[in-house]
Design a protein around this nucleic acid. Structure first.
Lengths: 245, 245
DNA sequence: GGTTGTCAATGGTTGGACCACTGGACCTCT
DNA sequence: AGAGGTCCAGTGGTCCAACCATTGACAACC
């Protein structure tokens, strides 16, 4: 099907120029021990020194500014905002290596709280959504599937019911990584029914306005999920990019 | 010192063009109900239709790509990755309105877990850092300060000790917002000593390898902090940007 | 039928031009 | 000397036109 799997012939990763620029700026911040508030060299100078056009510099800057690492003042210059983890967006962190165990721990932290809040603030429409998600999962499983969609919908409904947009955003940020673990877990023989049971217990707590019960059920559920996927996890560190000009 | 605090005279927010472009693209995604995987119109066309240069389009795209909302294939086009909350980065959410209660709930979710993990994984150097932070806070308080630096250092040391970079990144994302609540809380009369006490209890749990104790102490501490600042919190919804061309 | 060449569409990068804003130097008037 | 205004160099913001690199589909060829 595919060509020979020779290591030397794997596709070489080209990166966009502005990404390299951002990388260099991070390096610059680290190496010069810049303090927050310090001004960067002007764009034209950076362009000259890095040997790229001002446009590329400005693309990198736009990204860094959107991520809150720098502040740009028209006519004034560009200033450092936070030096910690400069240029390392969460999205980038999750992409570079699959830190599944870490992701699952973070998931537990967030979802347990989401369940607690949901058990306090849920409205009628939230319960309707949760029940619908449960039925969807049942239908999927009966149809021979593993129920990932219904599962995702259920957890999403809880997030919505928490009425906390910040927490929702945080869990969303992890959504992609969680999705993978979900597939792996639900592919386990006998898992979907167990998961369904766990969901019902969680819903009981939320519906009954019992945060304690909801929290306990959610924590138990997530630990079970994590257990399974963790057993199969093999860390693979040979996953760095090669764009390190 | 400063000018009159008249609402009408607050600095008006000029927005950069590429930010408006990103906003419009979000709107486009929402209004056309784009599904993940769908291709966007070509850059040149977007530039023409929005009446801006291709450069501005490309700056917006760079940001959206870094945030994981779109995927760009050289020679192939730009494709939607996630449609939920398109263009709404966490950073943007935290900036637009100060959602302090939400932030504090998220903080509790994360920090309680961080404490639990720290109480399992802490090493000698972590304990040294925590003790140093505590001493620093004491010194600050004795010198008439309120101890925010030492406080921040203490919580940061716990985060490091958790050995979970994902959680660390998430809490870092909230750091700025938390900082404000910290100042407010520690400015309360009699707060710094109480806070110091709470920190000692947390450290006891972590040092004694007792996750349960650490969790309980951390949760209690954060609820106390949240209580104080929540009482003074007045939601201010009239805080939207004005760039809605 | 499969291989190869061609080409239009589309993203990636550049250089230069010009505009807008900031802050300090400098000048003027009192 | 002080207050106020003017000017200007430095710096970010935007645009444009051109050219390069990659992709994918279609045509031509063997």
């Amino acid at each position: 099907m595919a060509g020979p799997a020779v290591a030397a012939l794997r596709p070489l990763s080209r990166s966009r120029l502005h990404e390299n620029v951002a990388e260099r700026l991070s390096q610059f911040v680290r190496e010069t021990h810049m303090r927050p508030g310090t001004r960067f060299p002007p764009e034209r100078e950076l362009a000259g020194q890095l040997g790229v056009s001002r446009t590329s510099i400005r693309q990198a800057i736009a990204v860094l500014e959107a991520q809150g690492f720098v502040e740009v003042r028209h006519g004034g210059g560009m200033f450092l905002r936070r030096s910690v983890d400069f240029g390392e967006s969460l999205h980038k962190l999750l992409e570079r290596r699959r830190r599944l165990p870490d992701v699952l721990e973070a998931r537990e932290a967030l979802e347990v709280k989401l369940a607690e809040l949901a058990a306090t603030r849920r409205r009628k429409e939230d319960l309707i959504a949760m029940h619908a998600a449960l039925r969807k999962m049942e239908a999927e499983v009966e149809a021979g599937g593993i129920g990932t969609d219904g599962d995702a919908a259920f957890h999403h409904a809880i997030a919505v019911a928490s009425r906390n947009p910040v927490l929702v955003r945080l869990i969303d940020e992890l959504a992609e990584a969680i999705k993978e673990s979900r597939i792996e877990s639900l592919s386990e023989p006998g898992r979907p029914p167990r998961s369904l049971q766990a969901h019902r217990r969680i819903l009981d707590g939320i519906e009954g306005l019992s945060p304690v019960k909801a929290v306990r059920a959610m924590r138990r559920h997530l630990r079970e999920v994590a257990d399974v996927s963790l057993l199969r996890w093999q860390p693979d560190e040979s996953d760095d990019g090669e764009a390190r000009a």
